[in-house]
Simulated assay, not measured.
Amino acid sequence: MVSVNPVGRRALALILVASLGLGGCAAGLGGGTYSRTEARRAMVVQFGVIESVRGVQLEGTKSPVGTVSGAAVGGIAGSSVGGNRGSAIGAVLGAVAGGLAGSAIEEGVTRKPGVEVTVQLENGQYLAVVQQDEGEQFMPGERVRILRDGGTTRVTR
């Protein structure tokens, strides 16, 4: 078992708390979620009928936070292995392994289920929109609204 000194334990606890908070930082990507910058902005509204719906996965975030947090935890844990030279090597190896693990954990924690909704617009054109699955059960044949502002497109009821 690897022993970690009290300072290392506090750093480890702080980093773990910060890493767990990553899930709360991810912006919603569903049809009912708006960013602050989208408030009071005009959107073009089109109507159509849902042609098909399929589940997809929205990949998680890949910011430096997960990598750096993991590297710090790994470096602290690795430095407590071995003596003098061994602790330096352990710290480097621990930091590398921790960085890779932290990055993977961040991506996994922030990954979200999504839906790809294909809509036939009133003009006959087809449009597919991918958005976060917020529990709305879109059904083929259902009439929906398409909202566009030039950068964001969403499907709503």
Rank of each mutant, 00 (worst) to 15 (best):
I50V: 15
V109H: 02
G55T: 15
G141R: 12
E134W: 10
L22G: 08
L127K: 07
Q131R: 02
S87F: 03
L20C: 14
R40S: 09
T33Q: 13
G66S: 09
V130T: 12
V73N: 02
G135E: 10
G150I: 15
V65K: 12
L58S: 08
E51G: 05
A13S: 02
G83Q: 12
T156P: 01
E38R: 12
G99F: 06
T153K: 00
I105K: 06
I50L: 07
R9K: 14
Y34H: 06
S69F: 03
S87M: 10
G31H: 07
N5F: 01
V119H: 14
V96S: 04
A77L: 04
Q125M: 08
A42Y: 04
I105F: 11
K62R: 13
G102K: 03
A91P: 06
R85F: 10
A128L: 11
G94L: 03
G30A: 13
G24Y: 11
L20H: 01
S19K: 01
Q125T: 08
A71H: 01
G24F: 13
R9H: 01
L127A: 02
E106S: 04
A42M: 08
F47R: 15
V17C: 10
E116T: 05
E136F: 13
E142S: 10
L16D: 07
G24C: 03
C25D: 05
V68F: 11
M1A: 13
A91Y: 01
A77P: 03
E136N: 12
K112W: 03
D133Q: 10
S80L: 00
A95K: 05
L16M: 08
G23C: 03
V119K: 08
R85W: 15
R148M: 10
T61I: 07
R41E: 03
R54H: 09
G28C: 09
G78P: 06
G86Y: 02
E136K: 15
V144E: 14
A18Q: 11
Q137S: 11
G86H: 07
G30T: 09
V117H: 12
R54K: 13
M139S: 14
R145M: 13
